[in-house]
């Protein structure tokens, strides 16, 4: 299976290659698939892409993905507005939503601080979070940044910045994945899970 280097089909394949996780072979297979598909099926895909670009944006409050000024979560009157859970990216927010384990609001930082790469507080949405806390109504901020150097640096920084405003700042626990044998856990995870133990 080969696609000529020029022509409309090759142009489509080149667009697919730019997508995450798509290599040359898959891109060509997808391009062929689109060519052979019924017109209305292929055009529905084109319309869906166009609609996403035209109507999906970021929530002005939490920076979650949204179709209006505020995302569905920020609009939902049943959510607990006193708790805000902080994540690096919308994908983490959606993983937590899938778990149904949290009923408050979110704040997406769109990144994390990096002592190694020199990413500082002005490059993530940290001031916006501080602003939300300053406006009042929030009593607890739960920092759910990744357990990496970047996530840790971000968590310490946010704690330093937010605590003076009188809110309770907490960090999600590290631990052994459910269903795993403890003996296979690595030393860092084990140490952290013992430190983060809770009373029964």
């Amino acid at each position: 299976m080969s696609v000529q280097q020029q022509g409309l089909l090759a142009t489509l394949a080149r667009e697919f290659v730019k997508l995450p996780g798509i290599g040359q072979k898959t891109a060509h297979r997808l391009a062929f698939h689109i060519m052979k598909a019924r017109s209305e099926d292929a055009l529905r895909l084109a319309d869906a892409i166009r609609d996403v670009k035209a109507h999906v944006t970021f929530c002005v409050q939490c920076r979650n993905i949204a179709e209006h000024e505020l995302c569905e979560i920020c609009q939902d009157p049943k959510r607990d507005r006193t708790k805000v859970l902080v994540v690096e990216e919308p994908s983490t927010l959606h993983a937590i939503e899938r778990s149904r384990g949290f009923h408050g609001l979110y704040h997406v930082l769109s990144g994390a601080l990096s002592p190694l790469d020199g990413v500082g507080p002005t490059e993530i949405r940290a001031h916006e979070l501080e602003q939300r806390v300053k406006e009042g109504g929030i009593t607890e901020v739960i920092v759910a940044t990744n357990p990496t150097i970047e996530g840790e640096a971000t968590a310490i920084y946010l704690t330093n910045v937010l605590k003076p405003h009188g809110v309770h700042v907490s960090r999600i626990a590290y631990g052994i994945p459910v269903g795993m044998d403890i003996e296979y856990a690595d030393d860092i995870t084990l140490t952290k899970s013992i430190e983060g133990r809770r009373e029964l």
């Binding site: 601080l113 002592p115 020199g118 500082g120 507080p121 002005t122 001031h127 501080e130 640096a153 310490i156 920084y157 330093n160 910045v161 003076p164």
Partner: peptide, 9 residues
């Protein structure tokens, strides 16, 4: 010291 704990570095 670029991450020093100031609120507005």
């Amino acid at each position: 010291d670029f991450l020093a704990a100031e609120s507005h570095p």
